[in-house]
Nucleic acid binder design. Structure first.
Lengths: 345, 345
DNA sequence: GTGAAAGCGCTAACAT
DNA sequence: ATGTTAGCGCTTTCAC
């Protein structure tokens, strides 16, 4: 029944013999290296096709590259991250590079285990998306293998970065709500205690952006921040606190869409109408936000663009490890939906 | 500024020298192989710790294993699939195996590219989640590397399978709705034309399960199926068709939660109340379903369990390639939420 | 432009 | 129980 296990993998030696050339020649053709005549290339390519040869990355990695890029994502459930992964995968689809991903599981220890595993597996480069690891760990990883860090502000000489302007994104929300006539705009943030991350993590920047934007609109008196976590429950608990205040806010800016989900539930349980009694906004423009029954006003970070640019930076760094590091920042856009409207009069 | 690139990677030779033993000894300790005294093990372990040695998978893969398991997921945006990945990752977390994942991108060609890439990278085993590739491709992959196929019914001598009983799941929904008093229960399925997949793909089985359950309840006259796709748009369009019928159904069983999202939107646009005017159910019990404002009745497939069992089957097969293939099937459970209630009187 | 040969880090026969 | 040695499949000097 069982198909007889394939005889043996075709190797570069088989190709060389079949094409009547040396293995060196095959290797060179494979890598488009210098020193091959057009005739040789043709012969080798034909032999490769005829034999169905595919190079074995493990062996390649012992001397050269594995043509593999590792991506660490913190949380594939947040639909924003798959966008980034798609951007990376698309950008590399027609190259020899392949993308392999592992979940970072939101822990320093777990992240270290993942980055180690990727290094040990000979990845040519790493893209770390919104890592929570301390800077020192990121730099030591980047010292071993070309690395791009996505979604953390602050620059490093050791790795390139790609991020979205969270400061501007928070301002988009505050301005949108203030333009609608809101004054008592509250914010639910993800508590950040570690001082080194305070300056780099998106959540901290969003909270900072909220405060700045409020001041810029002359609403410093109305600044109201509740610290919970970027989870549905964090939103639920945060909203309960805010709704208990007197006067209660007319708008809640949740730091992430998933937080807004919890807020919506708390608001609904409190018997309030959205947006009639209170406006709600999220951040990330995830699939959640777009769902018909939800229709959440949110901030869109071009995830695919972020991913595509990360991939390009990484490939550039793999080619030239000494090039100066780059920091790419994208501007977010506001997506206005049904959960925001002028405040009750 | 830049931390000076690490001198050189520590190799098994360094460990051997430092521990005053042979490289063979180190290799054996690493693999818990036969023929090492406790003293030797202690010495080697200490040297490994002192030098911070970590084996290089590429080199290992040339002779033995890479201790890497590849997982292909069709769609990380469907929150059901991350559950499976978590189950796999958790099950292998405390072993030497590491899990690397790649998106299958819902295409035969893309899936082939991904499985090839994983084979070329020396994966010890593959877990293919809900692949759409034809059986022949799955079998040829399984002929090269130990493989577990998740979420496809039907057995093979070449690979193990783990799936959830979609026939039973569909019956759970139909019975739930019928028990509530519904008779005109409609179903939105994902169109399946390929005959070979008709018998294996979960979507086809769910539609079949719906028909069987309706007959079992004496509702064969009421069977109403619309074929679209398992997407939000598919749900939207499918629901529009169903709502235009006279008499219109009192309940819609969407084949997947994401489909139900589109249904909810269409129903809302038609000015109908859920569940007052019409009951809606999904399938997969995704994060969507649990969101406060959605609260969708759905079918839960224990994703983590499926993942954990896949991992165990795979490791067992890696250890013994000749063991007979196993087929594990789990029973789904109904999660009743606010979108289902008795029909309007 | 081309190829012979060394060697990457590890595992597995095969001694001892 | 321990060590010696020959590769695994590829890339990379370095001759020609």
């Amino acid at each position: 029944m069982e198909p007889p296990a394939q005889p043996k993998r075709v190797t570069i030696v088989d190709v060389a013999r079949h094409a009547q050339v040396s293995t060196t020649a095959v290797s060179k053709v494979l890598r488009n290296a210098y020193g091959t005549s057009p005739e040789m290339r043709a012969k080798v390519r034909q032999a490769i096709d005829e034999l169905g040869y595919r190079p074995f990355a493990g062996a390649r990695g012992m001397r050269g590259q594995t043509y593999t890029v590792g991506v660490m994502l913190p949380d594939i459930r947040n639909p924003f991250f798959p966008d980034i992964l798609d951007g990376i995968t698309d950008a590399l689809w027609d190259t020899d590079y392949r993308v392999l991903m592992a979940p970072g599981r939101n822990g320093e220890e777990a992240e270290a285990k993942v980055t180690d595993a990727m290094i040990d597996r000979g990845m040519d480069g790493l893209i770390l998306v919104a890592p929570i690891s301390p800077r020192s760990h990121l730099e030591s990883v980047a010292g071993v293998v070309p690395t791009v860090v996505v979604g953390r502000h602050g620059q490093s000489a050791a790795y390139d970065t790609v991020s979205d302007d969270d400061l501007a994104g928070a301002a988009l929300i505050v301005d949108h709500l203030a333009d609608l006539g809101h004054r008592r705009i509250a914010h639910i943030e993800h508590a950040e205690t570690d001082p080194s991350r305070l300056a780099e993590m998106p959540n901290a920047i969003r909270a900072d952006g909220y405060r700045r934007a409020m001041r810029a609109r002359g609403l410093e008196e109305e600044i109201a921040v509740v610290s919970t976590t970027y989870t549905q429950e964090g939103g639920y608990l945060g909203a309960q606190q805010l709704l208990a205040r007197d006067p209660r806010p007319t708008a809640i800016f949740a730091g992430a869409d998933i937080v807004a989900m919890g807020v919506l539930q708390a608001v609904s349980e409190a018997g309030l109408q959205v947006p009639g009694d209170i406006s709600i906004t999220g951040y990330d423009n995830t699939t959640f936000a777009a769902l018909g029954p939800i229709s959440l006003t949110s901030v869109d970070q071009a995830g695919r663009l972020i991913g595509a640019n990360s991939a390009q930076l990484l490939i550039a760094r793999i080619r030239d490890r000494t090039r100066p590091t780059a920091q790419i920042k994208f501007s977010p856009t506001l997506v206005s939906r049904r959960t925001s409207s002028p405040p009750p009069s």
